[in-house]
């Protein structure tokens, strides 16, 4: 039976049919590990993140890494051509990936990436928004909710101030950005369901 890995964190969606499930999993893990490490390095640079307890740092990263990656890799999704670029550098059309078994998650990710890109944020704004995505006090397993909440509020204030300064005539941008947070949660939930299904099979 042909199998495909439609996550762009792979080098290619095509899976060698000779490889065992374990080997496929190992290869997949090898592909996304550097990206996850980059997320951890990014988190370490968020002022105040390293002051949180280590279990809370782990909980935030465990819960938020996917969402951070969605924001960071939004450019892999080209909504004009309706293509997705895999880490191996090759582009695949959304229709091709759908035929390979990609679920509604793919369409949702393309839609999200389009809306985020259309906001035209600078690198600095995107970076601060990513920090807000990661530092969310309502993630499961947080021990010291007050500390995470305090850091989250500081980051949100900084983001609002930066957006207001850079886009004085576009006050809706900040609101639109905050509304992206529940969208990311929803994508994260869909992705978790996919992962469970993938592991089970």
């Amino acid at each position: 039976r042909r199998r495909h890995l439609v996550c762009p964190m792979n080098t290619s969606p095509h899976v060698d049919p000779q490889k065992s499930g374990h080997e496929v999993w190992e290869e997949f893990s090898h592909s996304f590990t550097p990206a996850v490490r980059e997320v951890v390095e990014f988190a370490k640079k968020i002022p105040g993140f390293r002051d949180l307890s280590q279990p809370d740092q782990v909980s935030l990263l465990k819960a938020g890494t996917f969402e951070v990656l969605v924001v960071r890799f939004a450019s892999l999704f080209d909504m004009k051509d309706r293509t997705v670029t895999f880490l191996g550098g090759k582009k695949y059309s959304v229709d091709t990936l759908r035929a390979m078994g990609a679920s509604d998650l793919l369409n949702s990710m393309v839609d999200f990436s389009e809306k985020l890109t259309n906001l035209g944020l600078s690198e600095e704004e995107m970076s601060l928004f990513t920090a807000v995505v990661l530092v969310s006090a309502d993630r499961s397993g947080i021990e010291n909710v007050n500390s995470v909440e305090a850091l989250q509020e500081t980051l949100i204030r900084a983001l609002r101030s930066l957006i207001t300064k850079n886009h004085p005539n576009e006050s809706a941008i900040f609101t639109k950005l905050l509304l992206k947070l529940p969208d990311l949660r929803s994508l994260n939930n869909m992705h978790s369901e996919q992962l469970l299904a993938f592991k089970v099979h």
């Binding site: 893990s29 996304f32 590990t33 996850v36 490490r37 951890v40 390095e41 370490k44 390293r50 280590q54 740092q57 782990v58 990263l61 465990k62 819960a63 890494t65 992705h191 978790s192 992962l195 469970l196 592991k199 089970v200």
Partner: peptide, 27 residues
């Protein structure tokens, strides 16, 4: 199969990446 992040080995990668920094701090 209750925790996709753990299944993916994500927690292990995160802990190692965070710990690396702790070791640097101790140095």
């Amino acid at each position: 199969f209750g925790d996709p992040a753990s299944n993916l080995g994500l927690e292990d990668i995160i802990r190692k990446a965070l710990m690396g920094n702790l070791e640097e701090r101790q140095d």
